[in-house]
Each structure stands twice: as structure tokens, then as C-alpha cells.
Write a protein that binds this DNA or RNA. Structure first.
Lengths: 218, 218
DNA sequence: TACTATTTTTGAACACGTTCAACTGAACGT
DNA sequence: ACGTTCAGTTGAACGTGTTCAAAAATAGTA
């Protein structure tokens, strides 16, 4: 019984926080306000969440879990570019109500030491959960990928996605139409490059790219 | 006389701040400490600098001015890749003592609304000052660039540079050797792509890239 | 010199994220 | 029933970046 009440309190705080983030944005929402709206003392928010950032991280985790089923239709397409397009569109739609505060997740994107960075250690689990979607898209569409490139392909597509999402988050055009344009234009290129990469002629170029990936990963 | 004393106080605060940033890092240095080390009240730091971030921004501005002359030898190379290599190496060396706190400049790199982002409005002047170096390298090496691509080339090289510097700032390898590797490997590709871009065959590809640049810029 | 206007300087105060010692009360053994 | 335990909860307190009304120093004018 105690556990249940506790879990409920946790959820209550999480949702008050997300409501506030949506209404006012992330930096404008204070922990005191979150606690007040949950009818709880300030300190309790810290009993359940390690930090203000951690609340966003938890939201993002749940979001990816929610997205699993929602991505199912997208994963039915036969061609890789159609799949990727559908995956991105599904994410746009799912995240749309929270576009404003999701910037918080990207704010320290550049710093791998920041917990909120998509590249950080704390978000590793979330990130790998997300990799799997791309791996599946690659596997099931049976797109041909050179052996040397294959182990990194899901990661590369994930990075591509992160770039697109980053742009989308800060996209001020009506209905984020520019992000949609960007997807349409860039997806063509990604898939074209993927096809080109199979040409034996381009093995040296592939080698260079792989070297770069290697350096970037350490 | 008043102006001079005032200017001196300003410099005193700026240098105390930079010393502290170098010693302890940016987040670990407090405004109170900076003021104390300058022998001045806390509030005075805010009389001269709009914010803690603004101090870093000012440092970066000065740095680029200092770099002008230092880049002169680099701008003597005949080949574009040699120039770019020399430019990057000069920046590595100049910024080396401040590598630790320069992360502050990148911390909100993703958010164009953050003043410290290299893409922000407040850093526009600095950014354009930096563009000019790349424009000069392009012009003086007489490298052939398709007409449609030419107006954007300096910007593209600048972005490439920002990516490299970003990696360098967070590079934990001994002597940032991985950053050097990255430069060596990636510069080859950049220049190769530039040469390829002249092939009439690749006009459609160029068109796509230009469309992408257009979308990214708005 | 005395009076005024302007620039420079002060330090207390504010709101924030976060921490922590203390308190509450339900669950459990006796 | 009673005491013990400990997850759950409280709110004051800390250190932070930043603001601001007021004081001090300086320049200009008579």
C-alpha cells in the first residue's frame, strides 16, 4: 500500500512538472512551483527525482517506450527511405505538444559530460533503445550495406535523426514545415549515399568514413 | 582620467575572471570570487559585464582579434587544404590554455537563442569576423568552386571548423591527438568533395546540398 | 570653494536549484 | 496496546547568478 501511494506521489510530481514545462517552458518553471502544484513540499520533488533535469530525462524515457507501439505502422514500409520518413513523422507528431521544453534535452547537447546530452552516460539506455528501431529498419528492409559499414549503420542513422530532431525543436516556421522539407531533401541524399557506398570503386572513401567514425567514438 | 581608471577596472575584472576560469573551470568560478579577486564588490562585475556568459563572449572576441596576425603565416600556403590545416593548428595552439573553459561557449551551442551559442545573434559580429578568414583562404588559393556553391563556401568551411573545434574542446586524448587525426582525415575528404563538386555530372547533387543549406538558414 | 550632475562602487536582497536534519505515520513484531 | 523502524515528507538553509537602491567618488560649473 505504501509503495502504491508513493508511486502515485511520484507520478503526481512528474505530471505537474510536465504540465508546467508545457505551459511556461523548462527554464521558467521552478521546482518550488512544481512542488506547490503537486501539493507537496519542495524537498519531496528531490526525494523522487535527482534533479530538475532528471524529470525531463524520465519524460524522454517514457516517451520512447510509448513510441514503440506507435512506430509499428512505420516499420511496415518495404523501402528504407519510406520507413525512415514514417519514423520521423511519427516522432514529430508524438513530441509536438512538448516541442517547447524538449529544447532542454538539447541545451547541453554538445557537452558529453552533461547528463541531459543525448550522448551522455545517463542517457545511454535510452539511446540504445532508440538504436534498435533503426537496426530493425535496416534489417527488415534488407537494404544492402557493405560489410565494413554495417555495424555502424544504425548509429549513423540515429545521429542523422538527432540532427533532424534538433532542427525541428528550434524550427520556428509554420507547422515546422521547414523541418519537413529538410527531411524530404536529406532523406533522398542519405539513401543515395547508402546505395553509392556499395560501389567497389568507393571502398577507399568508405574506409575514410569508417576511420572518421572510429576517431569520433574514441 | 575617469575613463581610463574605469577601463582599467574593467580589464582587472576580465583578467581575474579568465584566470579563475583557467584554474577552476567556468561553472566552478563564482562571480563573488571573481569580484573578490579583483578587489571589488560583487555588483561591480555586473556594471561592466552583463552576465557571467558575457565575460566568456568578450574573451572570445578578443581572441579572434589576437588571432588575426597569428593566422598570417597560415594564410601564406598555396593549397587550400594546407591553409585550412594551418589555420586549425594555429587555433588549437592559441586556445590550448583555455580549452577547459571554452566548453562554456559550446555548452548551449545547439540553442540558437542562447547568447553563448556560436550561432546566436550576440555572437554574429564575432562569427562574421571569422568568416572572413575562410573567404580569404578560398579567394587567395584560387580553388575552383562552382558558381552556385561559391557564395556559401566560406560559411560551410566555418561550420566544418566549428565541428572540429567542438570535438577538440571535449577531446580527452593525450595532447588532443585524436582531434589532429580527425583534422587530417576529414580535411582530405572536404577537399576531395570540393574537387568532385566541379564535375558537371554532379550538378543535381550540388543542387540538393544547396537546397539543404537554404533550408537550414531559413 | 560650494553646488550639481554623472559615473562608479557598494553590499544587501531576490529567486533559483539543491541539500539536509528533523519530523510523521503506517507497517510490523511482540 | 506498545515500541521500533524506516520510507515518506517537511521547510529552513546554502551557494549560486543577478538586481537594485543607495552611497561614494569624480567632473563640471558658479
Amino acid at each position: 500500500m505504501r509503495q502504491q501511494r508513493s508511486a502515485e506521489t511520484r507520478v503526481k510530481i512528474l505530471e505537474a512538472a510536465l504540465d508546467l514545462f508545457r505551459e511556461r517552458g523548462f527554464p521558467e518553471s521552478t521546482m518550488r512551483e512544481i512542488a506547490a502544484r503537486s501539493g507537496v513540499a519542495t524537498g519531496l520533488a528531490y526525494y523522487y527525482f535527482a534533479s530538475k533535469d532528471a524529470i525531463v530525462l524520465e519524460y524522454y524515457q517514457r516517451a520512447l517506450e510509448d513510441l514503440g507501439p506507435l512506430l509499428e505502422p512505420a516499420q511496415q514500409h518495404k523501402k528504407l527511405d519510406d520507413r525512415l520518413h514514417a519514423i520521423l513523422e511519427a516522432k514529430f507528431q508524438y513530441f509536438e505538444p512538448n516541442r517547447r521544453f524538449l529544447g532542454a534535452l538539447m541545451s547541453n547537447a554538445a557537452d558529453p559530460a552533461s547528463a541531459l546530452s543525448p550522448f551522455s552516460e545517463p542517457s545511454r539506455a535510452i539511446r540504445e533503445f532508440d538504436f534498435a528501431q533503426f537496426q530493425r529498419a535496416i534489417d527488415e528492409t534488407g537494404v544492402s550495406i557493405p560489410k565494413d559499414l554495417a555495424p555502424h549503420m544504425a548509429k549513423i542513422l540515429w545521429m542523422y535523426q538527432m540532427g533532424i530532431l534538433l532542427f525541428w525543436i528550434y524550427d520556428r516556421s509554420e507547422n515546422q514545415s521547414r523541418s519537413r522539407q529538410l527531411v524530404k531533401r536529406s532523406l533522398g541524399m542519405v539513401v543515395l549515399l547508402l546505395k553509392l557506398s556499395n560501389l567497389p570503386l568507393l571502398k577507399p572513401a568508405r574506409k575514410t568514413v569508417l576511420d572518421l567514425v572510429g576517431i569520433l567514438e574514441g
